[in-house]
Amino acid sequence: MTATLALKVEGLTKQFRGTTALDSVYLEIQPGEIVALIGPSGCGKSTFLRCLTWLEQPDDGFIEVAGQPFGRERIGAVVRRQSGREIDRIRPRIGLVFQQLNLWPHLTALENIVRPQIVVLKRPREEATRRARDLLARLGLADRAERYPHSLSGGQKQRVAIARALAMDPALMLFDEPTSALDPELVGEVLAVLRQLAEAGTTMLVVTHEIGFAANVADRIAFMDHGRIVEEGPARQLIDAPRDPRLKGFLDLVLSHRDGPAPPLA
């Protein structure tokens, strides 16, 4: 394959006071691919996302976003840490949707999406506004543009957060547990939005414990445990025929805790 990878992670490592949160993680994502990252809580999924966005500085390893080194680069045999300014310049290429969304409550839904385009990408306001309205319309929020976050429902807030990240034209979208902060009845709504994005060809890495979503929408699943990606492969195959005993145990646990029967994996 000659196409540039959307994301390439090599040997990403992070320690907190002696405990290893990430233990040399490798991951590659093709453009348009949807990868679900699953694993028990505390396995390092969140740290992985925080290191991918350099909110947390990884101790070692390399990240490449759409072919661009991010955070650290190799020049010959020398490893150079990028400056804060360089890191800031690449950051919008990764759209992170936080678990807690972190919309800015003092700005309207529209302005939440417009402001970073103007500040970070230096887009003219008209263009940024057009782009924001476009995205809001696509996500079914055209009539909510002037609302402030506190007057939006949980699902609407999440779509605003997604639009905010998409407006930056990221090469890759990261989702941190997109369903966990929501009421159970909204989970379907969110999954529908993620499916919609998938159909539009958005590259996504989704940290989730929704095995249903992982199985139905994701192309590939990566299973993380103790800071390592233990097993990865095509979604259906990984769920139907897990090889690693830890993944087996995890799947048994998750599937048995679901209400009612698991959705058909057709």
Partner: peptide, 13 residues
């Protein structure tokens, strides 16, 4: 998260 979401999207401190 307010500060972090601004940083993650590419704003300088």
């Amino acid at each position: 998260g307010q500060f972090e979401s601004a940083r993650a999207i590419g704003m300088s401190p």
